[in-house]
């Protein structure tokens, strides 16, 4: 278990002191995938670097499985770090070493004998799906493959904790998903706790159980991923959630504008369905109750999260004002998120 208690990190500067992390309190359970999201400069990297002692908190304590990280120095600190893996945005592989030699690197550090470390590394290279590329150099691999090597290297010492700092930020969407699948598999099969730092909600939604949102050094919202997607409390969280819900927001705006131009009447609403609601015939029931309302589907999408699906639907409602008001009231009553995009 990881406990972050009242942790702050200040960087004294010539002009002014930068507060990179501000009074953060978090508890991360064993075996979960915990996401930390925030914009650039929010303090995510600084926070996670305090987990393995690359940074020490200015105040507060980071406790990992009962060990206070900031109290460790020298050998005990190195031994604690050997029980944690870390992966980075730019992979940070040694270009002078082959894939196999990169993966054996952490095992060399602890003085494991050669035959043993080669056997272990070969198995890990298999786990990450790079069998056959053992003797390739990083420069001969794609970004996704390089990140797989980095993951294998991070797993070499059988860590209990894997820290991922923007590990998919440099990858294309398809490769990102493949790497995320791999992290999920590692979490399931090896029972490793994973901390995922990202600025993309997509990453959180895809693999995280719980999450925190960071803004200007502070954790402003924290909890279950599904709950936060359903009821984001803070404005910044809403921004992150809506970015993710409407990845083709611009396309939708174009479609809405075209529709409005063609049929300059009616109201455009955005509906959000959560979990089981997506399975209920809410729309057809609404039409049965308010038969004089006509509707046009502008755009729609469904996303899977760890705990269920979230659907988004853009509708153009046409007809009598009272009827439309009744229909939207009905949607509210059914607890469907209803947002008026364009009134009449």
């Amino acid at each position: 278990m990881i406990e972050i208690k009242d942790v702050s990190k200040l960087y004294p500067g010539k002009q002014k002191t930068i507060t990179a992390v501000k009074d953060v309190n978090l508890t991360i359970n064993d075996g979960e995938i915990y996401g930390i999201v925030g914009y650039s400069g929010a303090g995510k990297s600084t926070l996670v670097r305090m987990f393995n002692g690359l940074e020490t908190p200015t105040s507060g304590v980071v406790t990992i499985n009962g060990t206070v990280m900031s109290e460790l120095k020298g050998k005990p600190l190195r031994e604690a770090r050997q029980k944690m893996g870390m992966i980075f945005q730019y992979f940070n592989l040694l270009w002078s070493r082959t894939v196999l030699e990169n993966v054996t690197f952490p095992l060399e550090l602890i003085g494991m004998d050669k035959a043993e470390r080669i056997a272990k590394a070969t198995k890990l290279i298999d786990t990450v799906g790079l069998q056959g590329r053992e003797n390739a150099y990083p420069s001969e691999l794609s970004g996704g493959q390089q990140q797989r090597v980095a993951i294998a290297r991070a797993l070499a010492n059988d860590p209990q904790l894997l820290l991922s700092d923007e590990a998919t930020s440099g990858l294309d969407p398809k490769t990102t998903d493949e790497v995320l699948e791999l992290l999920l598999k590692i979490n399931r099969e090896l029972k490793i706790t994973i901390i995922v730092i990202t600025h993309e909600m997509h990453v959180i939604r895809k693999i995280c159980d719980r999450m925190a949102v960071m803004d200007e050094g502070a954790v402003v919202e924290e909890g279950n991923v599904f709950d936060i997607f359903r009821h984001p409390k803070m404005e910044i969280t809403r921004q992150f959630v809506s970015e993710e819900e409407t990845p083709q927001l611009n396309d939708t705006t174009v479609v809405i504008n075209e529709l409005l131009a063609q049929v300059p009447t009616g109201k455009i609403v955005k509906l959000t369905f959560h979990g089981d609601q997506a399975k209920l015939p809410i729309i057809s029931e609404m039409l049965r109750q308010f038969p004089n309302v006509d509707l046009n589907i502008v755009d729609g999408s469904i996303h899977q999260t760890q705990e269920g699906s979230i659907g988004t639907l853009y509708l153009q409602l046409l007809g009598d004002d009272d009827e439309i008001a009744g229909a939207t009231d009905y949607l509210h009553k059914m607890r469907v998120g209803t947002e008026v995009i364009r009134g009449e």
């Binding site: 393995n52 690359l54 600190l77 190195r78 031994e79 604690a80 770090r81 050997q82 944690m84 870390m86 980075f88 730019y90 940070n92 592989l93 040694l94 690197f105 952490p106 550090l109 602890i110 290297r153 010492n157 820290l163």
Partner: peptide
């Protein structure tokens, strides 16, 4: 040398 590579080695517990 890319500083990230040195940092990665530190994170692995290298002396």
């Amino acid at each position: 040398i890319d500083h990230g590579v040195i940092e990665a080695a530190e994170a692995m517990g290298a002396t």
